[in-house]
Simulated assay, not measured.
Amino acid sequence: MARRIRVAAFLGTRPEVIKMYSPVRALRDQDSTFETIVCSSGQHAELLSDALTTFGMDVDYELDVMRTNQRPAEVAWKVARWAGDICDERRPDVVLVQGDTTTTMAAGVAAFHSSTPVAHVEAGLRTYDNSAPWPEEGHRRILGAIADLHFAPSEMAGANLVREGVAPDRVFLTGNTGIDALYWALSRPRDTPAPPDGQRRVVVTTHRRESIPDGITAIFGAVRQLAELYPDVRFQLVRHPSPPVLRTLRQIMDGARPRNVEVLAPCSYVPFMHMLADSYLIVTDSGGIQEEAPVLGKPLLVVNRRTAREEPLRIGTSDLVGTDRDSIVAAVAGLLDDPARHARMATPHEPYGDGLAGERIVKILGEEIAPGTATEAGR
């Protein structure tokens, strides 16, 4: 019996689980062709465990890397050593990583140093500003230099890679695997009621490191001001577990909080997608939500000074607002006060694919990777 292609998929955060779900599922559906090893660094703790349970994803190796107040550099060192040991022990034919987390970068570099081909899901996103997002932009560019297969979520992302010198035949336009997960989530039964007819809900999320503390203070302050200006609108502020974010949230929202502001604990992926689908508009600095909102037909205000997701900006369904309090208040008010403007931005579209990215990625792996690839590469 011919040896199967051995794929080691590394992840460590909730977004990675969400966006690795469809390729891992497709790999495991073809177990006569692929041997799939899922490795979890534990870069996120509670959120990661919940996501693994949501998607029914079994893990073969776990690191449990996260410690309180741990620096990103410490995570990188620990993950790289662990991933290198796995590559030496299991000798995968390819290492599959996703996005731009510290786990992704460290596992990719470890595979590179083990002479193991690296396949990068969601390749080619760029702001060309290493401070925004930090450290994610640097991670993306490191992976762009060392990966062997680049799975681009959009034509713009693919063009970035080719412009940087990646061979065009190593860049594959697949769409974004996050959209695969979104369609799956929307097909699941909902466990929360839809909002009453006519009730407008604004969903707000923020967590970016480069926005701490001033930007996040401005965002939370804007929400408080808007809630007072629009008492008939419900503002759903989903708190991130980052300690600096939580401290700032308590400072701004403790005390006499407006009654129409809900401060919500992070919820599981499926109910959160239904929450986004029920919203009137979304305010966020999350990359994943910037991809999901266009499919849902929700106007999106990006509260950051840079974004690597320019496609909705060009189409006109999102605006890059920044982290100035007055600018945020004006942008949200403009959509709440102007139904025609809201309607123009609430046009559903699919800039990141049709929900079949995972299947495309696995098909390409089967065509481009042969069993024994890593050993033959000089291991």
Rank of each mutant, 00 (worst) to 15 (best):
T177Q: 04
F112Q: 13
A73P: 09
V171A: 02
A83H: 05
P168I: 04
G178R: 09
M156L: 15
I146W: 06
G138T: 10
A132H: 14
I146F: 05
P133N: 03
L96Q: 02
Y128D: 15
A80I: 09
Y128A: 15
V166Y: 01
I179Y: 07
P92S: 04
G108R: 07
D169S: 11
L143D: 10
A76D: 03
M105L: 11
D129E: 05
R71M: 14
D88M: 14
F151C: 04
W82R: 05
D129I: 07
G99T: 04
L149E: 07
V171E: 01
R91D: 03
P133W: 07
V95E: 00
V162D: 06
M156A: 14
V171W: 04
D93N: 03
R91P: 06
V95H: 00
T174V: 12
R81K: 09
M105P: 01
Q70C: 05
L96F: 00
A80S: 15
A106I: 01
A159F: 08
A83Y: 10
A123Q: 03
E74S: 10
I86C: 04
R81W: 07
A73M: 12
T101N: 04
R91H: 11
R163I: 02
R71W: 05
A80C: 09
G144M: 07
I86L: 07
L173Q: 12
